[in-house]
Design a protein around this nucleic acid. Structure first.
Length: 646
RNA sequence: GCCUAUGUAGCUCAGCAGGUAGAGCACUUCCUUGGUAAGGAAGAGGUCACCGGUUCAAGUCCGGUCAUAGGCUCCA
């Protein structure tokens, strides 16, 4: 084989000690501009201070990158939750080694504590500056600022040898940014537009103290341990296979959990007057033309052909539930008509968007549609708020309601919107209390206002799962009617609602929230009997039979191992109840109880243990201790669900 | 779909100057018959994601495909 002489590669990192003389940086060109001392106000709130710090860290990082790549084009670099990022257009892609190099250079800059300085220049001056420096992204930023605000001047910030178009604010000196860490490189479209160039984005985190930084890094580690995909493997609940990307394979244990979940859902909704129907999964495209999904949602649907006709795998339950409604004449006496259809849904999510149970291509929503008269809206909403509360209390998860109102683009009559919004609002005021819910003006669906439910898990992350939406549009599309008391046909309103969002996603959240230690009623194995030696196996099976009779999912670990080993195994499998039995217990008809939550409990009669477990199952007690990790999430960042739009 | 990284036993990972695979756990068998998070020994288990190329020789280098992760975009 030919040994290539080790010539420097064309794309090797630039040597900063010998910068290309031809490259003129913004800082060089801005040397004569009127930069002034920049003072930071005292007594600022922590959030503001962090914002300054992180935004400044982004500038420091940009300086380090420009040092390394003098021809780099810099795009934008804001402060974000936990840190900052900056986007660059670079001559080559960055490697993990580059990140280390950049970090080292940043530390040098930080150590010298360069002051941030500010200059105000005319728009023309700014344009010339960035044109001469060949910074095209900045020019585009200037253009959009001018379009939007038509300012007379623009501000520049400088620290050391880096000058950036920037409104600020910043810290006074670079040393304030010293508790930082670069986290990762990724691609990001310029202006978030997938038709524009892909830039390289470097993410970093920055804090006010070493303790904060360490705590944050620790938090990230803990969060990683709780990843539901990891727990799913550890507890043998589900797996994924490349032959069905984005679809979950539930194992016997996992499917047990899933079924328990479904049973609860069925039971609780049946009690509240819901009727369950079961519809087809495959429809001619005409259905979705009627609903409008074919026009607007086609790229997310799986479409196949048979009999020279296009068929669609249903991506949501609404349209086919409407076929149920219109399948016969409806009377006002039937309303409110509460119909649930937990069908299997398919959505052709982009491969890059798939994420464990959080974002799948096949899933089931705890979906239901309620057909109501206008007068019934408010009571029905109150009822839904009540169910939501019941459900979330069961899982020990914090939640908050949010009202989203008419967006700029909407369908239907504004008067109807106003009425509907008023109905939602008064239901919220009456049942949740005014001020106890969030307002998202203009965030409603185009077909109606909605109430979203945001969950907060023990990692402080927010999730949008449940949603209650009013829909005036589909009743028209499907020409839904009911015969009213005066014998005339009237148009019902549809309420779309989901509490969990999707079972898959909610289970994923629950697994992370509980770190896999599910409440007894959901646990795949609720109790394990641990005989101390195989001489006790007969009694162990006797205990097994007693518990089984009490409706407990119980196993016997009769492997030829020491009990310490079996206990360890049961602990790692997060089995709520462990019943240790030896000669003594066999004699007395007892078991030595150990629980996942409370540890060793001592010798108790099997009857009593069986009673305790079966009560926990029956009541669906949330018998789990959640130790909340210190939260690093900001108040208003919500991870959006896949169940929010219909 | 786009960017970057990753893909070796059921799991977690090592091996990478190219010379035809290794650990721990899990599993099987045997010994041990034990009091609340790992007793001992032996054994079995892998087309190194897949396809193609370079080479006498590829887990290792190159190209492509698929999947996964983190982002971006999307989530009427």
């Amino acid at each position: 084989m030919n040994q290539q002489p080790s010539a420097p590669a064309a794309d090797a990192p630039a040597d900063p000690s010998a910068p290309d003389a031809a490259v003129v940086t913004v800082a060089d060109l801005a040397a004569d501009l009127p930069f002034e001392r920049y003072d930071v106000p005292e007594d600022e709130a922590r959030a503001e201070r962090l914002y300054r710090l992180r935004h400044s860290a982004a500038h420091v990082m940009a300086e380090a990158v420009v040092e390394l790549f003098p021809t780099a084009q810099v795009a934008t670099g804001p402060a974000i939750e936990h840190g900052f990022y900056y986007d660059f257009d670079l001559p080559r892609t960055l490697t993990p080694d580059d990140l280390t190099t950049i970090e080292r250079r940043m530390k040098k800059i930080i150590k010298r504590n360069f002051r941030f300085q500010r200059a105000e220049v005319s728009v023309a001056q700014a344009r010339k500056l960035f044109t001469d420096a060949n910074q095209t992204y900045k020019l585009e930023v200037i253009d959009s600022i001018v379009d939007k605000h038509a300012p007379e001047t623009l501000s520049l910030f400088r620290q050391s040898k880096f000058v950036d178009l920037c409104a600020g604010p910043h810290v006074s000196g670079t040393k304030t940014c010293r508790y930082f860490k670069l986290e990762r490189v990724s691609g990001a479209y310029w202006r978030g537009d997938s038709d524009r160039p892909m830039l390289q984005r470097i993410y970093g985190t920055a804090w006010e103290s070493k303790e904060d930084l360490d705590a944050y890094l620790h938090f990230k580690e803990e969060a990683k341990k709780r990843n539901h995909k990891r727990i799913g493997t550890e507890l043998d609940l589900f797996h994924f296979n490349k032959l069905a990307p984005g679809a979950c394979f539930w194992t016997p244990r996992g499917y047990t959990v899933y079924q328990e979940f479904l049973s609860y859902w069925r039971e609780s909704h049946k009690e509240r007057g819901y009727q369950e129907i079961y519809n087809p999964m495959l429809y001619k495209k005409d259905l979705y033309e009627t609903s409008g999904h074919y026009q607007h949602y086609k790229k997310d649907m799986f479409i196949l052909e048979a009999d020279h006709t296009e068929y669609c795998l249903k991506p949501m339950n609404c349209p086919d539930t409407f076929l149920f409604y219109t399948s016969k004449r409806r009377s006002f006496r039937e309303l409110p008509l509460r119909v649930s259809e937990g069908g299997v849904l398919h959505r052709n999510e982009l491969t890059g968007a798939l994420n464990g149970l959080f974002r799948v291509r096949q899933f089931t929503q705890d979906d239901a549609h309620i057909f109501v008269t206008e007068a019934q809206v408010q009571d029905e909403i109150a009822e839904l708020l009540d169910i939501s509360r019941e459900v979330y209390a069961l899982f020990g998860i914090d939640y908050r309601f949010a009202l989203s109102t008419r967006p700029e683009k909407f369908m239907g009559e504004p008067e109807l919107w106003d009425e509907a919004e008023a109905a939602l609002q008064s239901a919220l005021d009456a049942n949740v209390g005014s001020g106890n819910y969030k307002l998202n003006p203009g965030d409603g669906a185009f077909y109606g206002p909605k109430i979203d439910i945001e969950l907060t898990d023990c990692l402080g992350r927010k999730w949008q799962c449940g949603t209650i939406q009013l829909d005036f549009q589909q009743p028209i599309n499907f020409d839904m009617k009911y015969v009213d008391t005066d014998n005339t046909a009237k148009r019902p309103i549809v309420i779309h609602r989901a509490i969990f969002g999707s079972f898959e996603r909610f289970l994923g959240i629950l697994l992370e929230h509980t770190a896999g230690a599910l409440p007894t009623w959901l646990a795949p194995v609720q109790a394990v009997v641990v005989p101390i030696s195989d001489k006790i196996n007969d009694y162990a099976w006797q205990v097994h039979a007693w518990l089984k009779q009490a409706g407990v999912r119980v196993e016997v670990d009769e492997r030829n191992q020491k009990m310490g080993y079996k206990i360890r195994e049961a602990e790692m499998n997060k089995v709520p109840y462990m019943l240790v039995v030896g000669a003594q217990e066999a004699e007395a008809g007892t078991a030595n109880l150990r629980t996942y939550r409370d540890g060793k409990r001592g010798e108790i009669s099997v009857e009593q243990i069986a009673g305790e477990i079966s009560l926990a199952i029956q009541d669906r007690t949330f018998d789990v201790t959640i130790e909340p990790l210190r939260s690093f999430e900001d108040a208003d960042s919500v991870v959006e669900g896949d169940a929010q739009e219909y």
